[in-house]
Amino acid sequence: MRRLGLLSVAVLLAACSKSEAPPEPVRPVLSVKVQALSEESLGRFAGNIQARYESNTGFRVAGRIASRNVDVGAEVGKGTLLATLDPSDQQNQLRSAQGDLAKIEAQLINAQANARRQQALFDRGVGAQAQLDIAQTDLKTTQASLDQARAAVSQSKDQLGYTELRSDHKAVVTGWSAEAGQVVTAGQQVVTLAQPDIKEAVIDLPDTLVDQLPKDVVFQVAAQLDPAINTTAVIREIEPQAQSATRTRRARLTLAETPVGFRLGTAISVTLRSAVKPRIELPAAALQEVDGKPRIWVINSQDKTVAPRDVSVLSRTDSTVVLDGGVRNGERVISAGVNSLKPGQTVKFDEDSQ
């Protein structure tokens, strides 16, 4: 009887072990947290920071450049000497004008004395009216010549001053077009000055994209070396005609702010985005095809189990897939290994992963 009881217990235990399946193991998975996209990227373009106002400056007289006093990149104040011409010709012209002035000043003294003598003789009744008229006319003519000589001297001094090229305002030297020893004509471009107070972003946009831009489009502008230095910008002007070689049109953007890191010449990356209907972007590996229908696996945040969910696909690439809803912001979706999952299976994942 004791042997029969032990046999019955063994049979009962065997039956129980066959009816209860072992629990599914907890499976480690990769997951991403869903974040709805409300903007669509239309492209990223390279550009740089430039001054809105630049001036090409040159000498007001012709001559040979004697010296260049500042280098490219130098910050200059109003009145700073930038370059000089050989002043020999202008100095000679000034000496000649000063000599003419001295001669006419001497002639004026004689004309004044002669006019006084003729007036005195006429007043005593011994002088002729004709002689007095001639003396007074000579005095007026000499006075006019004196004014002309003084103007010539003043003009010669100005010409001599024009051999010095000075800055009209606070600026940054961005380029030289002539070297010391070079002969330049009056008005020829010699140096380019940029006013550093007002800066803007300059990029080249494809001609086909320009025609599609909305009027209120906003650009994201960031420094290429440090993307943390960034701001937004809007279009100030676009060239009306595309460049024949590249089929691009230069666009100048007004910056909402001007960070300290945005110095003249700073390389920037400009991203163009437009508002779209909220959509979900996931890794392509998160999508599973079942009977021709796309679906994803969503993690229950409470009990860490997974469940399949049918979705609608808007677009896909080799690495990503864009869904038209079907999942909410903040939910977690399995991003790899979806083909071996079972509904209700418990998974383990890193909650800090994105």
Rank of each mutant, 00 (worst) to 15 (best):
R316S: 09
R64W: 04
D310A: 14
P240L: 10
E105Q: 15
L13Y: 01
Q224V: 14
I299D: 11
T254M: 12
D226T: 01
G161N: 10
V313E: 03
A251T: 08
K293F: 10
L4S: 06
Q50V: 15
L4K: 02
N69K: 04
E179N: 04
A135P: 03
A111S: 05
V202F: 07
R95V: 13
L37G: 12
T141H: 14
Q136C: 01
A14N: 06
V126H: 11
N230G: 07
E237T: 15
D303R: 13
Q241V: 14
E164F: 06
Y53N: 12
V327W: 13
G125R: 00
A149H: 10
L4T: 05
Q224K: 13
V190S: 13
A284R: 11
S315G: 12
R117K: 11
P25Q: 15
A151H: 04
D86L: 11
T231C: 04
S8W: 14
S269A: 02
T254F: 12
L121W: 12
S145F: 06
D197V: 13
D350L: 03
A194G: 02
T185N: 15
T163A: 05
L42P: 11
V76A: 00
R236K: 13
I296S: 10
A111K: 01
S177D: 15
T246N: 09
